[in-house]
Structure formats: structure tokens, C-alpha cells
Design a protein around this nucleic acid. Structure first.
Lengths: 261, 261
DNA sequence: CTCGCCCACTCGTCTAGATACCTAAAGGAG
DNA sequence: CTCCTTTAGGTATCTAGACGAGTGGGCGAG
């Protein structure tokens, strides 16, 4: 068996850096240098207790630092592992172009299939409800809205949770109010209904997830979420949809093109 | 003095939810409901130990949960406080439009002044260096680049750290290689040099900060970073600059306009 | 009144151990 | 051969206490 000292070095008792930080530093560095690879198991708490001659709480404290950085994750009864980086999904800024819409299936499905992963859509809920203050403002002072909620999964892993809000006078009684909005999604339906789309506006924030989001997206600790709020405007300048999306940040790269003019 | 029970309720010993999570839940809920306001001090560890009849480590564990969520922050010798949400800086997608460039001062300064805050640029470093693999690829296989590093502060708080990389054949010997690139910034200089800008491409990720980033941006725990990589293309399709930016996620909202075509 | 010290309060770090529960593999009963 | 039990080795949670180190207010000396 490889001895720990060869991988991990000693503590510096003269340093005023806390012991648990020194241990975290050494583990982090070992991970960065590839001494522990993605998915690989780190030394167990007991081994580190032995190696450094500290108490177990101190070792656990080190792990919790690394966990907060999203570098490792613990599995009860098994060990602590280097967190593998999942494949990311790239969202290009032309993802709502009409040419994509004119196909049959939803953008998510098409794209995932192309990337060779298994897509899934889940926990669909479509209902009328009272608009929150924020949604109401964005849609131009509507009281009630049609809300379409769904969760997207890639190879069984939830990656995104989204809710679309539409003014009732647009959506009620149309196929948009059905669980399955038909080919091309709700944007295709909106255009058929005479609401020709002009442009979208997207607002992006990043933050740590709420406990609910941790559950819904099955997030490991140390993984932030990207919160994206998109508003769709028709050619008359009216906001016809607001889509509120929370994405697992480790599963996404967003990409935008900006004109230089 | 207001008694804690009026704010915080009891533990449920029959629940299989860990005690420290129950405590964290109650504190989180109290914060969400506004019983503790932004910047306000939470009960001290000793008070919570007393109130719940648990050991101090258990209370600390609860705090560390909330800290990881970015909800609270501890100040040594003072207490644990509800983390105030700092004012955010909005980055609009037209922020690189020529009309903004034709003014004198840098976009950051102008914008911050307008918002009534005190802007500052800091730790400027301009030097030639070897391009990393990634930068080289983005710039089209260049070996060495001019790197311009700077840090942006708002009211004394660091909010963003950025490095621009330019091919040497473009930048060397020009004002771009000077610490102060002159009015309108490097994009104005590039255009003067005949590299007419056509469009930008931005890639956005969110993740937890590295220890270096925590230091540079003085980040509280539980605050992710937004990592933005922008590539500027001239009208001939050549990549003329790559700008790598790390932003404190709690200080920014990014905003983009997408055409619907 | 002012300055400086002390003390109470607060969070930070660490120890040493107890109990619970999860996982995987080995071994025995059927 | 299959299924259950046992066991070893992991992490999860919690306790009780010790010492360190910032912060800020009170109080006494001058």
C-alpha cells in the first residue's frame, strides 16, 4: 500500500494557519496535481487521523472545507471522493432561432440526443395561478398567469428546473395550456397565435441553492445554481412569456453573441 | 429582552432530521420571514445552546450550514449576522456598443459614477507572457500574448478580476501595452489600429471560488463566482482579444438580448 | 474628562470519545 | 446456488470541555 506521507506531507506547527486548513490545503493541492483523480477515493478519516496525529473532528473539518469548494463529496459508509466534473451542456445564444423551432421535437431533446445522452422531462405541472410581484411586473401588470413547470434530466440526473409564465389572455384555451404544447414548443404556438416573436431578454444570476433546489436538482454541496430569467417580447413590444430557470451550475456553460455596434 | 422561543420554536426529537439541520431550518425560516433582518445579529452560540439544550458544536454546525448557503456570515468577537445583499451591478448586453466607447472614461467608471458609487481600478499588471493552452486556442494558435490584469472595486469592495489577452503582433508597441490604454479602452485602440470589431462571444460559467479568488475578491463563504470568458472578433473573423473575468456572483446581474430570428 | 486596562462576551480551533447508521464483502443456512 | 447474517470499515451526529483570540464597554488612575 502507498503510504500517505508520500502523497501528503506534514503539518507545520509553527504556522498560524489552522490545522484543518493546512490539511485541506494539502488535500486540495494533491487533487489539483492529479495525485487523486476524478471519482477517486481520498484517504479515510481514520487514516488521516493516524497520519496527521489530530482528532477526527479536525479531519472532518478539512473535508467540509473542500466540500464547500465543490471539490469533493462524501458518501455515507463508503468514503470521500473527488467530485467528477459532469459533462456540461452548452446553451448557445441562437438556441431560440426559428430554424430550430421548425423541427418537431423540443430543443432539449434534440440537443441531448445529438450529444449522445439520454434526455428526460419530468414533473410537468400546468396550471393557472396568481402572478408574483416580479412576474407581474415583467409581463406588464397581469394578475393571473398560466404557469408551466417542468424539470429536465440528462442521463437520469436533474440539471434544470424551469417555469414559464404566460398571460391568461394569450394562453388560456390554447394548446399552450396543455401538458404537451406540441412540436416546436410554446414559442411555435405563440407565433401561430399571431404573437410574432421579436427578441428575448435574459437576466443571469448565480447563487447558492435553497434547500428546495438542492432536493429538486439533487445538488452536491458546493455546487451553485445559475438563475436565468428570460422574457420573450413580440413584435409589438409586449412581453408574452417569462421563463424562470434554475440550473445546476456544474452542468452548464452559457454562450452569447453580442454585436459590436 | 425578547425570549428566543418566541422566534425559534423547539426541536422535534422524533424527527429523523439531524438536530443541527432542524436548528438551521428554524433559523433559515426566521430569516426568510424577516424576523431577522439584513445585517442583523442572530442569537449567539451560547444563547442557542441554552435555548435548544444542545452542545455548542451542534449549534456551530447549524451556522456552518447557513454559511454554506450564503445566508449568514460570522464575525469573530462580534456575532453571526444575516448577510446583507450588496447592490448589484447590471451588465447590459450593449455595454460594448461603440457609442459607449466614444466617450472618454472607461465603462466601469462611468457606470459606477452614474449609480452613485465610488469606483476604483487596482493591481494593474501589463506584461507579455506565454499563452495558456486555452487562451492560445481561442486566439487562434498564438504562442505568446500581452496580458492586461486589473481588479475592479466598488466602494472599496473588490467585485471583479479580469485579464485581457491580446496577440503580440497586434498589441506590442501600441498604447494597448501601456498601463493606461487611453480613452475608450483597448477596444477603441483596436479599432484605431484597423481591427474593426464585429462581434463578441461570451461564455459564462458559475462555480465556487478557489482560495486565491476568495482572497482577491474578499469573498464571504457561500458566495459563488461568475466566470466569464469573452472573445472579441474583428470584421475579418479574427479573434483579437480574449478577456477572462471572475466576478463576485452576489454583485452582478448579467443581462443579454437575443434576437428571435 | 481622558486614557488605558481589564473583563465579559463572542466566535475559532481542537480534543476525545460515544452512538448511530451505511456499505460491501465474507460466510453460513437453507 | 441463493439468500440472510455477520462483520469490518466507512461516514454522520452529538457531547463536554479546553484554550485562543477579537471586540467593546466599564471603570479606575491620572
Amino acid at each position: 500500500m502507498t503510504s500517505l506521507p508520500s502523497l501528503l506531507g506534514d503539518l507545520d506547527p509553527t504556522s498560524d494557519r489552522a490545522v484543518f486548513r493546512q490539511i485541506a490545503d494539502q488535500l486540495r493541492e494533491a487533487i489539483d496535481r492529479g495525485r487523486f483523480k476524478e471519482g477517486e477515493k481520498l484517504p479515510s478519516e481514520a487514516e488521516l487521523v493516524e497520519h496527521y496525529g489530530v482528532s477526527r473532528m479536525t479531519v472532518r473539518n478539512s473535508f467540509s472545507v473542500l466540500q464547500g469548494e465543490g471539490l469533493v463529496h462524501a458518501e455515507h459508509g463508503k468514503g470521500v471522493f473527488v467530485r467528477p466534473r459532469p459533462p456540461v451542456r452548452r446553451l448557445a445564444s441562437d438556441r431560440f432561432a426559428r430554424r430550430h423551432r421548425e423541427q418537431g421535437k423540443s430543443a432539449f431533446i434534440v440537443e441531448a440526443d445529438a450529444a449522445g445522452s439520454h434526455p428526460q422531462v419530468d414533473s410537468l405541472e400546468v396550471k393557472e395561478e396568481k402572478a408574483s410581484q416580479d412576474i407581474s411586473t415583467r409581463l406588464g401588470s397581469v394578475r393571473r398567469v398560466l404557469a408551466r413547470r417542468r424539470r429536465y434530466l440528462l442521463d437520469g440526473r436533474p440539471v434544470e428546473f424551469a417555469t414559464s409564465y404566460l398571460p391568461l389572455d394569450i394562453a388560456r384555451g390554447t394548446q399552450i395550456a396543455e401538458p404537451n404544447p406540441g412540436p416546436g414548443g410554446i414559442y411555435a404556438r405563440l407565433e401561430e397565435l399571431g404573437h410574432h416573436l421579436d427578441h428575448f431578454e435574459e437576466e443571469i444570476r448565480a447563487r447558492m441553492p435553497s434547500p428546495t433546489e438542492v432536493k429538486t436538482l439533487r445538488l452536491a454541496s458546493g455546487v451553485p445554481v445559475i438563475h436565468l430569467i428570460r422574457t420573450a417580447y413580440d413584435t409589438e413590444g409586449r412581453a408574452v412569456e417569462v421563463c424562470d430557470t434554475v440550473m445546476a451550475a456544474d452542468a452548464y456553460v452559457l454562450s452569447y453573441q453580442l454585436p459590436a455596434t
